[in-house]
Design a protein around this nucleic acid. Structure first.
Length: 768
DNA sequence: CAGTGAGCGAGCTTCCGCTTGACTT
């Protein structure tokens, strides 16, 4: 073998091999091949922050193979991405494979096209050490922050918690938004709308002023009863709309959320499938750039489908200077391929990517906006009607970007009108409208916010959200709204009618809410580690990483300047800060006269009667999930101390309701059943029995067949991962092609005998 | 699987960013 080329992704390796001919073997490193081990800090803070890199277990076989191949190659071409991380991957490869300088070439390309690859091979360079050092600084700063902050939380808040440059700011964003919503005081004002009949069309016009009070509104509408309306002014103005840029990871996640209802993890999973089948370009990118090849292909497609007047070649560039443009935007590999095979999710996502890319290369839409001012004889204030007509569709023929704003008015066409024309009002209505609190974040809108702040990377947006959810800092849930009254006045041919109507407000689809733990941790970190929780912290350190990459700054001195004061703060905080519990005094227990508190304990949110310092031991009770620690009242707290409570008997055994480690439960003899959404305070005997019977049914459904084998019981069961065989505490898999219902005892025993003797997962990890 | 919350102390937890499968029984 003459040449070994190493890229990051296996799908990319396959494509490139086709371009390079038989003298080249193309392999993939599967991303980073070395990292700091997770067990220890592995940064020598006494010795210029020397990192201790290791090859993780799951990369050992990759590295072994690459070493073997590189030994038999004349030249090794390191072709990882042209950004900070990519440069570091090349450097780690060179070190781990023991590559000699003279047989190593570093090449980069931004597009997976034959000419780009061949051009790269013609222009090799050496590894850029400054860029590598910028990556090391990034890696080590993140390790120092994460591994020194988290233990402070274990000590001051609760074990198993985590903190980091990206996740902690993400949680802060959610917490602060929730507090804005909690403290929001809505204002109300009265909108007045008039509906006119013009040539059989209804024209809706809004009064140019909103009234603060219902009295003013009432007076105005009363005046309209015998008034005449006429067109005072009419203006037409041309307007245009421009298509959105092609997709990046962030905008793809946002649009898939708005238009397809996908969560960010699902979007990335489906995009990965499309990438692996060769349908789209790489899905983790922050670039909006399209290759010349793609621009031309899009143009051809647009001319063919819509005509030449619809095509307009546009070059997009990223706003941020620091954008690491290692890839193209996300686009179809072949612009003339309008559909893909695959499941519905793949087809819908691909369709969206295709339309977005095509639209980005199309002409502006041309519109005509009409504004009509309507005067009222009874008032100085007039109405305004607005209409919008599309004169030339342009890119709208293919695609329109979605919007996060749910309240946007759609403007339609207006009939022809002339200045001075008298109008006939069918009705006039005054409606009380309330100002809206800021919107809670969805997964996708949080990604948008993080990207604006420059926090996180395309490859980490989805994992970051999963982290803050799995740490229980944030929950994804919906919320029911509450009824609210609003004033309403109607004037029509029957005269004036006034009423109080109701509407639902505050209802939410699935959104991100902070938990009590998320709030307590955020408050603690903001107070004690203000710098790191600052929204601009990442931007600040990114600037310094850029200076390291440009050779203007030495990486260890940058880390040192950060670490010295940071470390001092962690030590000081660990020694001096009070435990953060979010403690709140709820009132006094009327029975004992002792104080009642709500706070965060070692096992989560709880209520407490009495203080630990007193002679009499305090009493504790858990707050069930779904009830906010910050909202618990004295009455609710006292109720919680009534658990566990008996609700009756069933089959001769007591039914007891309690809250345990895994939430509220019904206990029946030795068996426990979770009570889920039901309220443990009010659940009845009948409901408890239903829960127990349901659980029995479910267990029955799980059981496919059962055999006696001497002492042992062999069961074929349906589990989370499909059917399996259970004997005692051990489980065995069933081959996919086997019908589990058809298994006999002999079949089961054969499968059990054939099962590979596997060491336990934990044991493997410990060996290292 | 279902009784904890103080403090003692064993040993454990933890970061971000680059990539995919392996595989849960």
């Amino acid at each position: 073998m003459k040449n070994l080329v190493i890229v990051e992704s296996p799908a990319k390796a396959k494509t490139i091999e086709g371009f390079l001919g038989k003298d080249f073997t193309v392999k993939s490193s599967f991303g980073h091949i070395r990292d700091l081990p997770s067990k220890k800090l592995s940064v020598d803070v006494e010795n210029n922050y020397a990192p201790d890199y290791v090859i993780p277990k799951d990369k050992e076989s990759v590295v072994k193979e690459l070493i073997k191949l590189s030994k038999s190659a004349d030249l090794v071409w390191l072709a990882s991405d042209e950004d900070r991380e990519g440069e570091a991957i090349s450097w780690h490869l060179k070190e781990a494979l023991g590559l000699k300088e003279e047989k190593t070439r570093r090449i980069v390309f931004h597009e997976i096209t034959k000419s780009a690859i061949l051009n790269a091979v013609e222009n090799p360079r050496t590894i850029n050490t400054d860029l590598v050092n910028a990556q090391q600084a990034r890696r080590i700063l993140d390790r120092l922050v994460g591994y020194e902050l988290s233990p402070v939380l274990w000590k001051k808040v609760k074990p198993n918690l985590s903190a980091g440059r990206v996740q902690s700011v993400s949680v802060r964003i959610i917490v602060e938004r929730e507090r804005q919503i909690e403290s929001f005081q809505p204002n109300s004002a009265f909108r007045v709308l008039a509906y006119f009949n013009v040539d059989g069309m209804e024209v809706r016009a809004e009064l140019s002023k909103r009234f603060d009070t219902i009295e003013e509104t009432r007076a105005f509408i009363a005046g309209c009863e015998n008034a005449s309306f006429s067109v005072a002014d009419l203006q037409k103005k041309p307007a245009k709309r421009t298509p959105a840029a092609p997709f990046t990871t962030s905008t793809l996640q946002q649009e898939a959320s708005r238009k397809l209802g996908f969560g960010v993890t699902r979007t990335m999973r489906v995009a990965q499938d499309l990438y692996e089948q060769g349908s789209i370009t790489y899905m983790r990118t922050d670039s909006v750039n399209l290759s010349d090849l793609a621009l031309n292909a899009a143009k051809d497609e647009i001319v063919k489908l819509y005509g030449a007047e619809y095509a307009k070649t546009r070059k997009y560039s990223s706003k941020s200077k620091g954008a690491q443009e290692a890839h193209e935007a996300i686009r179809p590999t072949y612009m003339d391929k309008k559909e893909v095979k695959g499941d519905a999710a793949q087809q819908r996502l691909y369709d969206m990517i295709w339309k977005r890319t095509i639209a980005s290369q199309m002409e502006d839409a041309k519109l005509e906006r009409t504004t009509v001012n309507v005067s009222v004889s009874s008032s100085e204030i007039g109405f305004v009607a607005q209409g919008e007509v599309i004169v030339f569709e342009g890119f709208l023929k293919a695609y329109l970007e979605g919007t996060d704003d749910e309240t946007e008015d759609t403007k339609g066409m207006l009939p022809n009108m002339t200045v001075g024309q008298d109008l006939d009002a069918a009705k006039v209505e005054g409606i009380e409208r309330f100002s809206q609190p800021p919107a809670r974040y969805t997964e996708a809108s949080l990604v948008k916010k993080l990207e604006e702040l420059g926090i996180g990377r395309p490859s980490t947006y989805a994992p970051t959200i999963n982290t803050i959810i799995s740490r229980n800092y944030v929950v994804k849930e919906g919320k029911e709204g509450v009824e609210r009254e609003y004033g309403y006045i109607l004037l029509d041919s029957n005269g004036i009618k006034e009423e109080v109507k109701t509407e639902i407000t505050g209802a939410e689809k699935v959104k991100l809410f902070p938990t009590d733990i998320g709030k307590v941790v955020t408050d603690f970190l903001v107070e004690n580690f203000t710098e790191i929780l600052d929204y601009n912290f990442t931007a600040q350190v990114e600037k310094e990483f850029d200076e390291i990459a440009d050779g203007q700054k030495e990486w260890t001195s940058m880390i040192d300047a950060f670490y010295k004061p940071f470390h001092k703060t962690t030590v000081h905080t660990a020694e001096n800060a009070k435990k953060a519990t979010g403690e709140r005094l709820l009132g006094v227990d009327p029975k004992s006269g002792r104080n009642v508190y709500s706070r965060l304990g070692r096992f989560g949110p709880m209520v407490q009667i009495g203080e630990a310092e007193n002679e009499e031991k305090p009493k504790f009770a858990s707050i069930p999930a779904g009830k906010r620690m910050e909202e618990v009242t004295l009455e609710e707290a006292l109720e919680l101390f009534k658990l566990p409570r008996e609700v009756g008997e069933f089959e001769g055994e007591k039914l007891t309701i309690g809250i345990g480690k895994y939430g509220p439960y019904v206990r029946h003899g030795k068996s426990y059943v979770s009570i889920g959404e039901l309220d443990p305070m009010t659940i009845t005997k009948e409901e408890s029995i239903t829960l127990i019977e349901d659980k029995r049914d479910e267990l029955k459904k799980m059981m496919i067949s059962e055999f006696k084998d001497g002492e042992d019981v062999v069961q074929v069961k349906n589990g989370r991962y499909g059917p399996y065989i259970a004997v005692g505490k051990k489980n065995y898999r069933i081959p996919k092609e086997t019908e589990p219902e058809s298994l006999t005892l002999a079949d089961c025993k054969e499968l059990i005998a054939k099962a590979p003797a596997k060491p336990k997962r934990g044991a493997v990890r410990k060996k290292k």
